[in-house]
Simulated scan of single mutants.
Amino acid sequence: MRNMISNIDNIIEFIKRSNDFVVTSHISPDGDNIGSTLGIYYSLKKLGKNVYYVLDDNAPLNLRFLVENVTKMSSSDFKALNIENYNLIALDCGDKSRVCVTKEIKEEAVKIICIDHHASNDSYGDLNYIDVEASSTSELVYNLLVRLNKLDNTNIIDEDIATALYTGLVTDTGNFSYSSTHPSSFEMAKELMILGAKRDKIIQSVFQSNSYNYYKLLGEALNTLDIVHGKVACISLTIDMLQRNNMSFNDVDGITTYTRDIENVEVGILLKQKKDNEVKVSLRSKNYVNVSKIAQTFNGGGHIRAAGCTIYDTVENAKVKILQEVLKEI
């Protein structure tokens, strides 16, 4: 715990001494990705820093309410500004290669600060705050801001920051249903609501606003449901299915839960085709299978109960390959 506080204090002191920051996260944005990034973005703004939100990907439809009033830049947009001596803050990204900016932006940063909760993280930052027990990276950002308040009597959490962090918390805990939920998660939720988090807006946008096309795609996806040995469930989504239902690649990760939430199933798998020979695989488990270990077999990573990887092959072959590895663990 002492080490963790020291890491937080080092990051706070570095932020105080520095002026220019790029904040970013991993490819295929999710709630904790965007929530933690915007939590830091708004906080740095309030501290008088120059801060740029750079991400070479788009927010899913159900999370776009968070970025409505934020200028999100591409890597090329940022490079055109010719900013020198900037620092990069990478949030919720366990692998430097998955940080969603160009290699050039990563390499030219004076320092990289990594704030993350993935077990597969190898501490690639110059400054790291990594806690694999945390419910979400948003919880780590919250801890950092609470520590800042304790050190400097500077409570900067306002409605925007509270809303961003609450979104990250509820999405990464499955609205407090996953095993990553701890008593500290509920304490954080309580404090963020007191500080103005728009809970109703978050719940409605994230969990209660799927489009008609989403449900048409879901119906088609469920027709591919395959249960293997009663313990593994698998669903496949192809490019044709996405196009036929006018859905984008980043808007359908919620379908993964339909594989896990079946009686007696231990591991759920969603195969989502991105290109002809590129398939994103999302893995979820209930009780005992470490899906992060399985994902690492394919250079992926994540958490014990939720992880992912990319397999460069057809959907059919990707399914065979991932099932081979999953069945070894069942």
Rank of each mutant, 00 (worst) to 15 (best):
K79L: 15
N153S: 13
V70S: 10
H182I: 01
T171L: 08
I311D: 12
I262L: 15
I12V: 14
D30Y: 14
S205W: 06
V267T: 13
A90P: 04
S138A: 15
I227S: 05
V170F: 11
D276N: 15
H303M: 04
T167R: 07
T256C: 07
G125E: 06
I89F: 00
N50I: 03
E139V: 09
D152F: 15
L61N: 14
E133G: 13
S285I: 01
G48I: 11
I130M: 03
L144Q: 08
N213G: 09
S179Y: 00
N50S: 11
N143Q: 14
I27M: 14
V67F: 03
G268E: 00
L145S: 09
S18V: 00
V132F: 09
D251T: 03
V99P: 05
I304S: 00
S179V: 14
G35M: 07
M241P: 11
I130Y: 00
T173D: 06
I239N: 13
E266V: 08
S136K: 09
V320Q: 12
Q324N: 15
N264M: 03
K198A: 09
T167K: 07
L44G: 04
K111S: 14
Y42D: 00
D30K: 08
V141W: 08
C234F: 01
H118T: 08
K49Q: 03
S236Y: 01
I8G: 07
E325M: 12
S36F: 12
T310M: 08
D77E: 05
E133N: 12
G268D: 01
A59T: 10
C309N: 07
D126A: 04
L47D: 10
S97D: 07
A318D: 02
E139C: 05
Q243F: 05
A318R: 10
V70D: 10
L91G: 01
A90S: 14
S135N: 07
S97L: 11
I15P: 02
D172Y: 12
